[in-house]
Structures are given as C-alpha cells and as structure tokens.
Design a protein around this nucleic acid. Sequence first.
DNA 1: GAGTGGTCTAGACCACCTG
DNA 2: AGGTGGTCTAGACCACTCA
Lengths: 244, 244
Amino acid sequence: MPTDVLEETVLGSIRPTSFQTIKQDVLHKIRAGIWKSGAYIPGEQELSEKYGCSRTTVNRALRELADSGVLERRRKAGTKVSSTSVQAARLWIPIVRQEIEDRGQDYGYKLLEKTIEPAPAAISKILSIEETTDVICVKCLHYADDIPYQLEERWLNPAAVPEAKDQSFDEMGPNEWLVMTQPVADMEHVFTASNATKEQAGLLDIKEKDALFVIERRTWSEHHTITVVRFFSPGARYKMVSQV
Amino acid sequence: MPTDVLEETVLGSIRPTSFQTIKQDVLHKIRAGIWKSGAYIPGEQELSEKYGCSRTTVNRALRELADSGVLERRRKAGTKVSSTSVQAARLWIPIVRQEIEDRGQDYGYKLLEKTIEPAPAAISKILSIEETTDVICVKCLHYADDIPYQLEERWLNPAAVPEAKDQSFDEMGPNEWLVMTQPVADMEHVFTASNATKEQAGLLDIKEKDALFVIERRTWSEHHTITVVRFFSPGARYKMVSQV
DNA sequence: GAGTGGTCTAGACCACCTG
DNA sequence: AGGTGGTCTAGACCACTCA
C-alpha cells in the first residue's frame, strides 16, 4: 500500500475508502497538475489496489467523473483526463412559483388570455400535429412581489391533454396544473435572447427592445408532444445558474 | 415472477435485467400514468424480486433517475415520483471553435486587445483578489464563416496562471490555450440576456440594443480563481440546447 | 489475442428517518 | 425500533477495442 493512501487512511476515517473520497482525490490530482489534461491515468485494477478498495468502488468514482465530463473512458484504451472543455453542467430548471418563493418573494399570477384556435403553422410543426387541428393557447404573467417577473406563452396539444380544454387557468398557471396532473415526461430546453416587442414590454413593465431571456421548453409523453412553452424574462433581472 | 417481467424477458434479451431496462420500465410506468406524480413506488427489495435481479441493479437504476430529478428518495420513507418539475437537465458547454466546426462552418479568430492593468473593482471581487493587483484582460472575437459569432471578454488572474502574461493570444484564443495548458477545474456558469452596447454592436455587426445572449463563466483551481469570462452572442443567431 | 472498462450478483453493514 | 435507501465487497462474465 503506497504511502499517500496510507496517509489518507490515517488522516481520514477508519471506514473503507468511499467512492466519494476517490472522486475528490482524483479531482485533486487533476487540479494540482499531477494528472495532466489528456494524459492516461492508472486502470481500475491498479487504483483499487492503491486505494485499498474493490474495483467496483473505483469504477463508480471514475464513472461519475466521466459522466460529468472530467474523464474520458474507453475499453481497452483506458481512462484519460478530458482535454476538450466540453463540460456537462447540471442545470436546475425550477417551476416559476417555487423559484420566486425560494427567494422569499411573494408569488403572483395573472391569466392574460386563453383561447382554442387552429394551430399556427410554426406551432403545429413543433407539436407534430396537423395545421388545421385546434390547440389551446394560454398567455399569462408571473409576478414577484407584484413586479412582473416572467411572461408565459403556451400551446397545449388537446390530443395529449384533453382535460386542459375544461381548465380555466384563472387561478392556477398551466405549468403548475401540468405538473400536478401530468406524469413526468421528456423535455427539451432551448435558451436564447430576444428583444422585447412593444406588447411584451408593456406587460413586463420594461422598455420596448429591452433584452429578454427566453426559455423554450417542449414536453413529450409516451405518444404525444404535450406542450410547447416560451418563458420571457427581463434579462436585467433574470439569471440562470449552473454548477458542475 | 410477474407476467409483465416475463414478457420483458421473452421480448428482450436473454441477459439478466439490466439497470437500463429498469430505468426505461420505470420511466414507462410514470409516463403511462401507472405510477402517478407524488406517489410512492415499491421499495428496492420488492422491485428486485419483481425484476428478477439483485437489489444493487435496482438501486443503480433508481439512483440515476433520482439524480436526474425524476424520482425523490429518502431513507425509511421510500422512493416517490417527483411532484415538483424541478428537473436536472444536462447542458453541454462546448468550446467555441468546436461548436462552430461541428456545424460545418469555418472558424475564425481575432484578438482585439490584450492588456495588463489593475483589476476594476467588480472584477477583483469576482476573482477574489486585491483591487490594486494587476490582471490580464483579453478581448477577442470568434467568427463562423467570417460572420462575427461571439465576443469574448476575459480577465485572467496572473497569480493562478503566470504563463498567461507571456502568451500573446494572437493566433490562439485564451479559451483554447487554457484548455490545453490548465488542468480541468471547477466552473460556474451564469446565463442572462443584455442589450448590445454601441461598441459591442459594432464588433458583432448587429444593431445597438439588439439582444445578446450572455454566458458568464468562472473557473477555479485548487487555490485560485483562475479566470472570469463573458461570452456575448447575438440572440437572433445563438441557441443553447439542453436535453435530459 | 488480450487488456480495459461495463455490468451484474449475493451478501453485508450502516446511516438515516419515520412512525 | 425498525424499515428504507446508501454503500462496499469479492468475484464473475462480457463487450469493446487496441495492437
């Protein structure tokens, strides 16, 4: 057993080397420059001996590091420190109400419009339905401490959620309603920026052309595209944070 | 052994039930509404018997689903389907050059400015250094097919990367240089939107006040904040996609 | 062909939390 | 107090891919 591992054992706990300890140690070795970018690191077998634990434990540590883009692994070739800076970051996408309440602000909601109309060409394409089909269109506004926080424009596929037709969305936003009633589904997010239209500026109490942070979310269930929604938030007030 | 598992076995492979099969089956049950939002699902022990595999395998499947926010787990309480729509999405943050070349466009680079100057108050705070300390400031432009794609404003902490002082950044952008020479480190990303200043508009060949998608990235090594960088991209041309 | 990572097992102990 | 998930082990077989 090499001395540095022995030190770890003495300094650390008596419990067996955990995969988390190994993760930290690998990160340390990379950050300290001991294992350089692009270089191959020892195999699982060797590491398990050095750390004095089973290969399964080493495997979990290295696997998780590979999942987050720190390491690259290939059978037979081995494991190396990632040289590309393509990093996988974890992004938490909260529901609006929670986001606001978590910051200790009062959440407010106002329905602006709910209509059932034939899908515009662009929307029918996104929802993968015929152009003539009716879709439910909901526009609403979310407030933080009575200040407009986010504008929501949503199209719902009635074939996927027929109950939405009878839902007024007067009191509860479509987001919350969907979360409560619909099973968890696959999502795709597209982030971009746009200039506020005159209408958007009026609703959000900002100036026309002010920068908006735009989140477009598509949601699928087993057989349908459920909904597509765009959230517009004033860029001056909105930040989305991700940490690895 | 229950019939549905038997079916799986007959329809699928002869190999033992893998954690991936279980993940898919759990997702299916959730999407199909068999396991509803907020409801508790069977424990690992019970599931391992139903799937005819070891508890370890079930554990891995459920753990990964919990990691991505689909399930919530607590000891003793059990595992339930997430009721909040707080979803963890995986975000791939590529280096600019790769991003452009992956789309089959030509990558171009131009250094605008490289100075060494006392850190402005805002930057020294972010880099966790004294205000009087010198920092390296680099401004450069990235092109896709000769069209301005992204404006980069970077501050480097000389204490963390002394070699950066001697680097001209004439030919190679600081991003690529850092990736090649510095060990992988911890990162934080903040996404927001802003209006282009007159100067930014000129450089990016857009109109003043046009919406910009802004990525701010901070990078740490073991002992220092290495760098803080802001990437400005025209919102009309830039999209960042994340999928679970 | 052979070495690496990818996965599964059966069993075990433990930390945490709820009832 | 007891059940649940969290983790570790030792061993095994396999898939992939490099030389």
